[in-house]
């Protein structure tokens, strides 16, 4: 009984977390049709950008939060989109290698200025106590992850389904060539999608920074999570990504509470692997973004 309670709670908590981690990656996959391997660096820019603003420059928390978003937008447009993605859109191997290189450079830079031993303390905790849900206790801060996941997903869906720009984004994701010829400014919409894609990971990092193990190489595992959830969800379909996040959350919590916590990573990898072999289109039914 306790195990079932734990699994339920953690499925929701982890599912929301995975969703926040994967949402931006999935959007870029669905709209631009590329794997943004620079996405791992987004998490580092969020955490260490925040830390730089707070500790090295010494601004207050609210200025730092605004600052980190500006930093993130500059990074994604000025380093990821215009110099690399836009230029190498049609040359996949150059695109992927350059993106990978950039994320490694970011990691090395972070490691140079803020090595693991330096310690990072970002005071964005709204709750610092733990919460008792039946037999399960979780950090209360995790509730904010759940709320953020719901709100951001709702915003994304609203934006895609109800606004003009969202309409263009969907058109591009379904038929690039025809969109161009019907007058859609594709490059501009791409740039906007890139900006949108860094919002969920930035918010996610701000929320979990106080309760997470922060280190300069954390981008790898977060990128891996984003890739796995996106593949499982059908390469860019948001509905699929939402479902996939909670499926992965369910696998992780089930394996952790019923089996061996050390097999969590392996079991997620295996499930995604078999989905790729037997149902390469992922779990989503349609090709649309939603």
């Amino acid at each position: 009984m306790d195990a079932i309670q734990s699994i339920l709670v953690y499925t929701v908590v982890l599912g929301s977390l995975y969703l926040l981690i994967a949402l931006g990656f999935s959007l870029i996959c669905g709209v631009l049709g590329i794997f943004n391997l620079g996405y791992g660096a987004t998490f580092l820019v969020a955490i260490y950008g925040m830390w730089m603003l707070l500790s090295t420059i010494g601004v207050n928390l609210w200025v730092a939060i605004i600052g980190v978003f500006i930093l993130q937008f500059l990074f994604t447009l000025g380093i990821i989109y215009f110099p690399i993605v836009k230029r190498y859109m049609e040359k996949e191997e150059l695109l992927l290698t350059s993106l990978l290189l950039v994320s490694l450079i970011v990691e090395e830079t972070v490691n140079h200025f803020y090595p693991v031993t330096a310690g990072v303390d970002i005071p964005t905790a709204i709750f610092s106590h733990t919460l008792q849900l039946g037999s399960v206790s979780i950090p209360a801060q995790m509730l904010i992850v759940i709320i953020a996941a719901v709100l951001i997903t709702a915003f994304f869906v609203y934006f895609l389904m109800k606004t003009r720009i969202g309409f263009k984004i969907r058109a591009i994701s379904q038929q690039l060539e025809a969109s161009r010829l019907l007058g859609v400014r594709v490059e501009r919409v791409y740039a906007l999608a890139m900006i949108l894609s860094v919002v969920p990971p930035t918010i996610c990092m701000l929320i979990i920074a106080p309760i997470w193990a922060i280190e300069p190489n954390m981008g790898h595992s977060l990128l891996q999570t984003a890739i796995l959830v996106t593949i499982l969800g059908g390469l860019g379909n948001l509905r699929g990504t939402v479902m996939a996040s909670f499926i992965v959350g369910l696998i992780a919590s089930s394996v952790a509470f019923l089996g061996n916590p050390r097999l969590v990573g392996m079991s997620i990898l295996l499930v995604v692997f078999f989905v790729m072999i037997f149902k390469p289109q992922g779990i989503a039914k349609s090709e649309t973004l939603w």
């Binding site: 003009r164 309409f167 379904q174 025809a178 969109s179």
Partner: peptide, 28 residues
């Protein structure tokens, strides 16, 4: 034909209406 497969016929044409000319103030 290169339609937007997961949009309705109406929305397919809507892309042309909304993007084919500069119409920044036209609502969906």
């Amino acid at each position: 034909p290169r339609p937007f497969p997961d949009m309705t016929a109406l929305m397919n044409v809507g892309v042309g209406v909304l993007c084919g000319k500069k119409r920044p103030n036209m609502s969906l």
